[in-house]
Design a protein around this nucleic acid. Structure first.
Lengths: 332, 332
DNA sequence: CTGTTAGCGCTTTCAT
DNA sequence: ATGAAAGCGCTAACAG
């Protein structure tokens, strides 16, 4: 059986121009819309374009226009990160990038050489950086680049770079308000929190959450009990048990520990405590473990999308850098 | 507190040339190694390069050299695919791509417009396509592109494109050989297989596995029992139970169903049947559910890496397209 | 071993 | 509303 060699011919902008009986520049302008083109010409051009299957050469375009129509997504693939959540982020970024007519280059280097290569080499118009730590060596490098970048997470010193994150402080306040309304006045409120290691690393979001939680409790005349907790269901159970020993008045509990929640949540319910969980939305997809629960979902996808929006704002030269915290909402 | 505006200056190849007191082309050749350069000049050039923090403009380079140093990784983000496995693939691809001095553009479009854009627009030197179905509309498009691509999975008609996959047939034979040695001669051998839906879709790997399994059994004078199975542990248990009802002679069982394995495997053990599991390596990381088991691991990462190697072979104009099946191995 | 130079295919001033 | 032409920063012939 013979197979026809039908590798499609590549045609440049000038072939399109010839076919449409206009000059190359007119085709370019028709494509970019940066100049009014008569309806008739537009028609002929677009006809020519899809007759030839024309697609502008990305490199040439980048060279001439100083714009690559490509974004970098930086995801250090270190162990111990939740792949589901990561993919949610990525999906948000990828999808929204396409909405802005951009493709996405993914970097997984753990060092910062990739940033330099991609930035200095002008392969991208901007960068979205995931998994940012409080003092992240990459921030230095990013701040030097001509391209804007958006960090997902808030480091100690953003050095003028944009940040997007979930508003953990607001989430804590929201939860405390809710728990305050659902528990006997004066009873203590507890926070089943991130593992001690997370606090030791000085991870900003955990600190922000804890601070806001304690403050909100005190404002309502509630005692605040913070229980750091290892990321396993068993530890979650244990944490709640410890809570019950520490106080004889079962109050409410805020659970912010994805992996411990499956243990802590039912345990709280059994003990007759009101509970609110803060958790990534992906996990919410499954069947809710134990009837209707109060949860404050974190949509990684939405955060990723927001990051791209901010980034494109800066790329398009309108926006300035800033910090955007995504408002929490409470659902059952 | 004031912050110094120290956005690094961008310098072109000619600035490097000036600083190193050579011509631009010499710098270019020094970088590409396509021409012998005296040691002394090399030194001055590389000194100049890192004094200026020079990084070649990717677009210009692509325009002039017809090479982008970028690969596309195509991953349709449809639901029902295992994220862990996907990330393993991706990690393999990303890492190996860097070994070949290439970056990776990730496409998640479900349609084939992305392929066309990236291919016709010459944004990449080649494409790795995941999650290929037996009759995949993307194959048509890929076959027209000037860039080579390699499919992960083997479709009915690869149309001259390269394919990489795990050798499921060989895995079945390996498993049968093992089970044959571990069970009473003449006892039937069973295959706890993929869900019916997978067979209905005509998914090639499932068919190849089943065919080889049945044949290998018959060669050894064994009855072959095939039990399609839904992807849940419970279904796995049920499948084994059904097996025990169907025959009074407990033989051996080959389990090829990632999600059912956690149920089927212990059930087989309890019933005193020998078992072998074919499963993605990522799942193997966790604690083995029930002592030492026989497993034939599939390393998604290795497959991804192999795909990139094949692709780069073709990009570098040496290699020709072909099908590569990764040999299975048996471990405890 | 090194330099000169002509493009690569597009965007974007200038002109008209 | 449209054209002509000058680059964008690099690579790869051609020349020595």
């Amino acid at each position: 059986m013979w197979r026809v060699e039908s590798r499609v011919e590549v045609s440049g902008i000038s072939e399109v121009a010839r076919l449409a009986k206009v000059s190359p520049s007119t085709v370019s302008y028709a494509l970019s819309g940066k100049r009014p083109i008569s309806e008739a010409t537009k028609q002929r051009i677009s006809a020519a374009i899809d007759e030839l299957g024309y697609q502008p050469h990305a490199g040439a375009r980048a060279l001439a226009s100083q714009r690559t129509r490509t974004l970098a997504l930086v995801v250090p693939l270190r162990s111990g990160i939740d792949l589901n959540v990561m993919m949610q982020f990525a999906a948000g970024v990828l999808t929204r990038a396409r909405d802005h007519d951009h493709d996405v280059l993914v970097l997984t280097d753990r060092d910062e050489t990739g940033l330099a290569r991609v930035g200095r080499g002008r392969m991208v118009d901007g960068l979205v950086v995931m998994d940012v730590e409080s003092a992240d060596p990459r921030i230095q490098v990013l701040a030097q680049l001509r391209q804007p970048s958006v960090l997902i997470g808030v480091p100690d010193d953003p050095m003028g770079l944009s940040c997007v994150d979930f508003d953990f402080a607001a989430a804590a306040r929201l939860a405390v308000t809710e728990l305050d309304g659902r528990t006997r006045a004066g009873a203590p409120l507890a926070l089943v929190a991130s593992p001690p290691a997370v606090y030791e690393r000085g991870t900003s979001f955990a600190l922000r959450l804890r601070g806001a939680f304690v403050e909100a409790c005190h404002q309502r005349g509630r005692e605040a009990i913070v229980v750091p907790c290892e990321p396993t269901p068993a530890s979650g159970r244990a944490a709640v048990a410890a809570l019950l020993e520490a106080t004889d008045q079962p109050g409410g509990v805020l659970i912010h520990n994805e992996l411990a929640a499956p243990g802590a949540c039912p345990a709280a319910r059994e003990a007759g405590m009101a509970s609110v969980c803060i958790e990534p939305e992906s996990l919410t997809d499954g069947p809710a473990p134990g009837g209707d629960r109060l949860v404050i979902p974190i949509s990684a996808q939405a955060i990723g999308a927001a990051a791209v929006d901010m980034l494109m704002d800066q790329v398009e030269d309108g926006g300035v850098a800033g910090v955007q915290l995504m408002a929490p909402r409470l659902t059952r």
